[in-house]
Design a protein around this nucleic acid. Structure first.
Lengths: 211, 211
DNA sequence: AACAAATTATGAATGTATTCACATTTTGGA
DNA sequence: TCCAAAATGTGAATACATTCATAATTTGTT
């Protein structure tokens, strides 16, 4: 039963997120006070804290919409994986980096820095990544069933290794303005190629030309 | 000419660091207000900020005493490198992780999180690491001269790769209480072994001099 | 020794995230 | 319809890092 309370609750949460996203984009994270978010959402400051534990947790919620979208896009890749195994993995991880560029780097920085200090936030941030590892595992198992990967391979471990490459470049992107999103894309592709090389059933002599 | 001013300055900086180190250890970082540090150092709050740009910068200064010590210990390894090349690199990096356990993990967390948001702090933190990469480079060149490493190897690049392993485990240690310092030691050794495997000269038994 | 300039110390004031005691609204039952 | 309980909203109060205008101290010069 969805009573009035429930509907109001959802409406308020959405208003908070919309207000915060708008303000973060125009004024930056540091330049936006909770006071302002509350004002724009037509709520009291205290109410914000009934919906979100902290300011960075609002960022997490905003970012999650995009990572969820990226995961959904990943599911599509899973349903119709490209022929080329390296290309398939690359396609999946390309979806996963999509959200990086969609937000100000400073927003990611605040989120990661806060996650380092708040285990609950870290868990929330990491939950998405665990699902990405799950998708990677599924894809690798699929490729393995096809005979593209070595049959004795532990797909789970391999997925973790590939995720490691992804995570490293995410951190590099977050940590330094010097690392452009294009560079992340390129380096990630390189890294995937390197790791996949060790996983393939046969040398990728012709599949080398990946799109 | 070392006037009164200079001497007072040094004394005050030392007092601030001593007070902060003591309080951080007993009450934790978050539990220690700048006010308290000032009180214990018998200085005004504003004075602290004449010596350090921010609270995390005090942490950096505290931590630096230990990392500097570790670097000095590394120099010793450089002077008398163990015969076994893998052992030599391991010895150097073992010195470098020494400081990790010497401070509360929370202190490292605050420092890294703050560095993510403050480029100057990041530069300060990274400066030490650059010197470590320098030591690694020197050691690798030495090993290369001995004929232990492949002669065509770029020692600088190899040093960066080894540093990458070190950095990853530092981050893992900082990020999660689940990663014990012993585990870091063990995993680091593993990682070094893995990377070094690719660097060693084909036949380590035949000492070949690369002019 | 006395003074002006330069440097440094000071702590009250500022800005802002977060908390909390209390007010308001919603709910389910009679 | 009315009421008590539960849930939620509210914004003033709290706590704390950082800043800044002013006071105090040191220095070099005459």
């Amino acid at each position: 039963m969805t009573g009035l309370r429930e509907r109001q609750k959802q409406g308020r949460e959405a208003r908070i997120l919309a207000a915060a996203a708008e303000l973060f984009e125009t004024q930056g994270y540091g330049g936006t006070a909770i006071q302002e978010i509350a004002g724009r959402a037509e709520l009291a400051v205290g109410t914000i804290y009934n919906y979100f534990r902290s300011k960075p947790e609002i960022v997490l919620a905003i970012v999650r919409r995009d990572t969820a979208e990226a995961l959904a896009a990943g599911e599509e890749v899973l349903k119709h994986p490209p022929r080329d195994p390296v290309g398939a993995v690359t396609a999946l991880l390309e979806r996963a980096i999509e959200p990086f560029a969609r937000h100000d780097r400073a927003l990611w920085r605040e989120l990661v820095a806060a996650a380092l200090l708040d285990p609950k936030l870290a868990a929330g941030l990491f939950a998405e990544d665990l699902r990405l590892v799950g998708e990677l595992s599924a894809l690798l198992r699929e490729l393995q069933a096809r005979g593209d990967l070595r049959p004795e391979l532990d797909a789970g471990r391999a997925a973790v290794a590939l995720y490691g490459v992804f995570f490293s470049w995410f951190m590099a992107f977050v940590a330094s303005d010097a690392v452009a999103i294009g560079a992340v894309r390129a380096e990630l592709a390189q890294g995937i190629g390197l790791v996949m090389h060790g996983l393939l059933a046969r040398a990728p002599s012709e599949a080398r030309r990946a799109t």
